[in-house]
Design a protein around this nucleic acid. Structure first.
Lengths: 231, 231
DNA sequence: CCGTATCCGGGGGGATACTG
DNA sequence: CAGTATCCCCCCGGATACGG
């Protein structure tokens, strides 16, 4: 982006010069959500090329929004952190998200969900504190997704945090979740409820009944799930 | 903009598909500020071509953000109004503006102010209710601006509202304001005060003392003026 | 005043391959 | 894992001119 597209002194225009380029807002959202490593960021913006990701990160660094840190860890390891100016962008991201949740019909995107992106987001919002105080392994199976991305394991460990696996980690499975990708997405976005999906047979749970019954608790939802559609 | 650049179900991404194209945010800001006529909008986004303005207005209309109304007035007159969904975007615009005011160094833009844009914005924020209850004519003269755009008259009428003229309307002038464009911009943005500018001789007032003394009152500032720079 | 139509160039960014 | 490097297409949008 050239130095000045809009050439306006209005703070809205000055901010938009920085934030208006493609992918920038989406990338900042991922940074706000807590990703710091290059490849973690990539998982949050899977359709962005790595070349462009690098470029945007440099731009944000130059604008004082992101800081690039070497990890003390040996070699070639870097982390990207929001500066104070970057953290202050949270207000904008939240305002955008709330508006989107309230006013945009999600049907189009619901029919086109990337399973790995959904799992990446879901992993982050899981309330491990509302799960039994032991390692819990939940297997998700999507009935309408290409085999390669149909099965996921989410391993919630009191010590290790929440881990997402595309390959069977080999632990005993506490809960099996079988559903279609659209239902799972709608639930996570707050557009449908676990109980309703169970009722109409679009969601199936089997395994540990305690874990199953508490699913609507420990399955934290999208930050924007609480905002109902308008109009 | 193609239907789906980001292809993400995240509301932030869905909203950004609509809001992320060039000039869109700036245009919405102008709509939020109250402009409804095509040429009024143009004055608020002077560097945007009319072709692109039309295109963006259509897009916003298709997304249910803007409504295009014919005026009852005879022929070919249209007005653009924000719908409820559009008005709800105010939160985003404000969040962006506050962030810009707090975190972006405005020096670059201050040195490159478009006088007509500044006057267009200033006109809108003038507090006519804090002026004497009669027609008040204020002449602005910028000392460092191309002659064509150096002189402006702002006619504040209790009945007619605030009118901006690039040509002398012929009324008696109540107050002469002489300054450079950068000082005037900085004052309006809340980065400098009227009293300070008077002190250091960068702003000169002559004419009606009552109006002169109350300038910092009736000269309403930018919406973002109250937010001091951070860092 | 309120747009439309058309041309056309520049560069943003997607795709792909490669490296320490 | 964390990026570079390169190619090159496409389309955004600036400029200009025109119409109701």
């Amino acid at each position: 982006m050239p130095d000045s597209i809009y050439s306006q002194f209005c703070p809205v225009a000055m901010a938009t010069e920085i934030l208006g380029s493609r992918w920038t807002i989406i990338l900042i959202r991922e940074l706000c959500a807590g990703s710091t490593r290059f490849n973690d960021l990539r998982r949050g913006v899977p359709r962005m090329s790595s070349a462009l990701l690098t470029k945007r990160l440099r731009e944000l660094e130059n604008h004082g929004i992101v800081e690039r840190r070497a990890t003390d860890n040996s070699a070639g390891q870097f982390e990207y952190h929001l500066t104070d100016a970057g953290k202050a962008l949270t207000d904008i991201i939240v305002a955008i998200g709330i508006w989107g949740q309230k006013w945009i019909n999600a049907e189009l995107q619901l029919n086109n969900t990337d399973p790995s992106l959904l799992m990446w987001d879901m992993r982050r919002s899981i309330r491990r504190d509302l799960l039994p105080d032991r390692r819990v392994n939940v297997q998700f199976e999507f009935t309408d997704v290409t085999p390669r991305e149909a099965q996921w394991w989410v391993v919630c460990d009191p010590d290790q945090g929440v881990d997402l696996c595309l390959n069977d980690p080999g632990f005993d499975v506490d809960l099996y979740v079988v559903t279609d990708i659209k239902t799972m997405t709608a639930i996570w976005m707050g557009l449908e409820s676990v109980s309703k999906a169970l009722e109409v047979d679009k969601l199936h749970l089997s395994g540990d009944t305690e874990v199953a019954n508490a699913m609507s608790e420990w399955l934290g939802l999208s930050l924007f799930a609480p905002y109902p559609k308008e109009k």
